[in-house]
């Protein structure tokens, strides 16, 4: 059991396929493999950044973990309160423990709050429905968390329409944190916000994580945001996990050609001029018609015959560093060279 001492969540072989239905009788003509055979573990107190382009399955992964989506296949195990919860077969009592332990922050601060419920009702809902608190106690707990996210107690009886985007996102964060969860899945929590507000929310998330020893799975398409907030980074492409490793190594010396491509495409601030931002042709594949072998080979400049014939499996290259590429050892790929090496934080 010692192995799992600082393990919070273990995902093994997770698959989520959406049936592709056509015609009058809605016959299933194929599947969209939004997440395919994905395995990773999340450690207590870390921020795991999940990055990838649209359609790579990062949102689906997050929704499977919070059990909004029913996985097609695979195992997910949560280690809380000295117990092992198998997330695909939760009993009623386990479900309540799970809901107390895992929460989610949504992307769109306007869509994720019910406009017809006051802040007290919205933030208090997880306490109420999980029978954690009610009445006076509920109000006190909500007031406490509302202050933690930087809002005022006087705001409790207001409705969402009176808040700005940044404030609404704070409300969304309060709703996730009110049950004092262990794991929070944050799905693009700053993407819909104005540039000048993003930093407020990112700092808030970071502060809260340190104060409450939270674990985040932070899903984003924005590599710069991921770099800022994460301890480890998981890169997804076309439903597959292609690379997973500590932030510093992955950013400076990526092992998967897709990570290299992705990093190269991010606009630079220090070296802004063209040429620094490398452009690679091609687009992500259609999820209903994936190429044979490696899903990335159609855009990969290092692709060889083997890549079309054999699908690379995710393997542990070094301790704690996972890649799914046949040639990970042979390739020397370039990442981002930061201006100042201050990765200690």
């Amino acid at each position: 059991m010692n192995v799992y001492k600082d393990m919070l969540l273990k995902v093994e072989g997770l698959c989520k396929y959406f049936p592709l239905q056509r015609g009058f009788l809605r016959r299933t003509v194929g599947y969209i493999k939004a997440v395919d055979n994905l395995s990773l573990d999340v450690r207590r107190g870390e921020v795991l950044g999940v990055v990838g382009e649209s359609g790579c399955g990062k949102t689906t992964l997050g929704r499977c973990i919070v059990r909004v989506y029913e996985p097609t296949d695979g195992q997910m195990t949560l280690y809380v309160d000295g117990r092992e919860l198998s997330l695909t077969e939760l009993s009623g009592e386990e479900m309540r423990l799970f809901r107390r332990s895992v929460q989610m922050i949504f992307q769109d601060p306007f869509a994720s709050l019910n406009p017809r419920m006051s802040i007290l009702e919205t933030v208090g809902e997880p306490l109420l429905v999980n029978k954690i608190a009610s009445g006076r106690e509920l109000e006190e707990r909500v007031a406490k968390v509302i202050q933690q996210v930087g809002l005022r107690v006087e705001h409790l009886r207001r409705y969402p329409h009176s808040f700005s985007g940044g404030q609404r996102q704070r409300i969304g964060i309060a709703r996730a944190l009110v049950v004092e969860p262990k794991l929070v899945v944050a799905d693009e929590p700053v993407s819909a916000l104005d540039v000048s507000i993003q930093a407020q929310i990112l700092n808030l998330l970071k502060d809260l994580q340190e104060q409450q020893n939270l674990t985040y799975i932070f899903v984003s398409h924005n590599m710069a945001v991921i770099r800022y907030i994460s301890d480890r980074i998981a890169v997804m492409y076309a439903g597959k996990l292609v690379e997973l490793g500590p932030k510093h190594e992955l950013l400076t010396r990526p092992k998967h050609p897709y990570t290299e491509l992705l990093l190269a495409a991010v606009p630079r601030t220090v070296e802004r001029r063209r040429g620094q931002r490398t452009v690679t042709p091609g687009e992500p594949p259609d999820l209903a018609h994936l190429p044979s072998g490696c899903v990335f080979r159609t855009r990969c400049k290092y692709a060889k015959e083997r890549c079309a014939e054999e699908e690379p499996q995710l393997r542990e290259l070094e301790t704690g560093y996972f890649v799914s590429c046949h040639f990970a050892e042979e390739l020397t790929l370039s990442g981002v060279a930061p201006r100042v090496q201050s990765f200690a934080a």
Partner: peptide, 24 residues
Amino acid sequence: DYALAAQVAGASKPRIIFRHLLPG
């Protein structure tokens, strides 16, 4: 999203329908 959020919060299906969706 707020219906999903209610689901994540642990709200039951009837609660989601009557408290969140119907008033909508």
